[in-house]
Nucleic acid binder design. Structure first.
Length: 431
RNA sequence: GCGGUAGUGGCGAAGUGGUUAACGCACCGGAUUGUGGCUCCGGCACGCGUGGGUUCGAUUCCCACCUACCGCCCCA
């Protein structure tokens, strides 16, 4: 094989691309009903946009970014996630200005890049559908946005979803907890896994997330962040839980759940699926939360924010495993069969007229025999086949065959070019 | 970054240190000068992931690399 696609990338071919379109269209529809608008930001940003926002001790920044220096010696990175760029755009374009009604609600969909070892549901170039809401601290924003994510996944046919929430509290609460956690873990330092030792001082919350058994045993007795929430943080989290209850959205609280990105505070959540696609294990399809303070971190005014992102590859994996039926439209209205050069020429005008009339039409381009052309028409599921040979060209009349019934009728060219809709209906009615 | 498994035509899949690399599906052609299904006949890998090495000879043995899949790490 002369050329191969880069490791961890995929070609999304016809047959597969229709599924992507369906998922994307579903997202647009659902998001529209919540009054979100699309935003499109660059696929690469300055390095600082991510190191500032995602956190320079995060795994994403320390080892997973596709970064390089361009010909102007700018330090560029292919975006590893969507939020930072959207926040940058929000600030740079002053969407915080008074002429923009608050909250500003946007969604995006597109490729993200992380330098990782590919696995099922994890690619180096992968795709996310995400949303961001700027300008409101209200718990209703958290809850409605979570509800929208659930809504979307249900529209995609997903069953058995589990919503897990937690609160990281505001900056003060988080700082207090961070210290408490360090104080708790330090006596156990020698027993911790290597990774957790590394993280203890850089990002102790991540130790909570460790899958190492010994770490988990230690962490089991660690203080809970929920006990360190101050009054404001508690009030917010309580409101979130109440509103989820009002909407009858079931959820679990996992006080050990953290996020890989540093910018989160207050509510964080994940939506998980235990689909066969992941061997019955729970796998996260959607993750997000609140990120008050990120906009100011990127040079804008203090602005509360809330958002989520979901992995399209993972979503599609689940939909495949769960055999979700997608209404994919492959309909071909007309296939044109022509025998001989004169017929081919005549067909050109007819097929264009048919397409202009709003019908889907295909023909043969390989000079195949009539039989071969009919076989193709059949395989493409053409509803009607229009046949043309020398005699038809002479009489300026085409044969139209109803492929379902086998009935055939003759129609003058003039009628086909001027009113194909009527012709088509006549053929379909032919027994 | 670490560990494991694998890589033969468009797809699935057999196979061997040595003349022409099974078979199935798909596709193309013919039987049927211009009509879909079935059947029958015929065609379809100068090649066995890539590059080296061993050998008189390698798809088969050895090494490296690449890629995919699974797990770790982490995440969507």
């Amino acid at each position: 094989m002369a050329y191969q696609r880069p490791k961890g990338t995929a070609d999304i071919l016809p047959g597969e691309s229709e599924k992507w379109q369906y998922v994307e269209a579903t997202a647009r529809n659902v998001f529209k009903s919540y009054h979100f608008s699309e935003v499109r930001t660059p696929m690469f940003e300055n390095f600082d946009v991510f190191s500032r926002s995602v956190g320079d001790t995060s795994d994403i920044v320390t080892k997973e970014m596709y970064d390089f220096h361009d010909k102007g010696d700018r330090h560029i990175v292919l975006r590893p996630e969507g939020t930072a760029g959207v926040v940058r755009a929000y600030v740079e374009n002053k969407l915080y200005g008074p002429e923009h009604p608050k909250p500003v609600k946007v969604y995006y969909m597109g490729p993200m890049f992380r330098y990782e070892r590919p696995q099922s549901g994890r690619m180096r170039e992968f795709h996310q559908i995400g949303v961001e809401v700027f300008g409101s601290e209200q718990a209703a924003v958290d809850v409605e946005t979570i509800a929208m994510a659930m809504d979307f996944l249900k529209h995609c046919g997903l069953q058995d979803l589990k919503l897990v929430i937690n609160s990281l509290g505001n900056i003060a609460s988080r700082q207090a907890y961070r210290q408490a956690l360090i104080d708790f873990l330090e006596p156990h330092f020698a027993e911790l896994s290597h990774d957790s030792q590394e993280r203890l001082h850089k990002n102790p919350l991540r130790v909570l997330d460790s899958k190492d058994e010994k770490d988990q045993a230690i962490v089991a007795d660690a203080p809970s962040i929920l006990d360190y929430l101050d009054e404001e943080s508690t009030a917010h989290f309580t409101a979130v839980k109440q509103l989820l209850g009002d909407l009858d959205i079931p959820y679990e609280i996992d006080a050990n759940m953290v996020r890989g990105l540093d910018y989160y505070n207050h509510t964080i959540f994940e939506i998980m699926s235990n689909s066969k696609a992941f061997g019955g294990q729970y796998m996260t399809v959607c993750g997000g939360g609140r990120y008050n303070g990120l906009a100011s971190e990127l040079g804008g005014p203090e602005t509360p924010g809330f958002g989520f992102a979901m992995g399209v590859e993972r979503l599609l994996l689940i939909m495949d495993a769960d055999k979700v039926a997608m209404p994919i439209d492959h309909a071909l209205d007309v296939y044109l069969v022509s025998i001989g050069d004169a017929a081919q020429r005549a067909n050109l005008k007819l097929i264009q007229a048919i397409r202009q009339a709003g019908f889907t039409a295909e023909r043969d381009y390989l000079d195949r025999k009539a039989k071969g052309q009919f076989k193709t028409a059949n395989r493409l599921n053409a509803k009607v086949v229009l046949t043309l040979g020398d005699s038809e060209v002479e009489s300026a009349t085409a044969h139209l065959k109803n492929m379902a019934t086998g009935a055939e009728i003759s129609v003058p060219f003039a009628q086909i070019t001027t009113d194909f809709k009527a012709v088509y209906e006549t053929v379909l009615a032919a027994e």
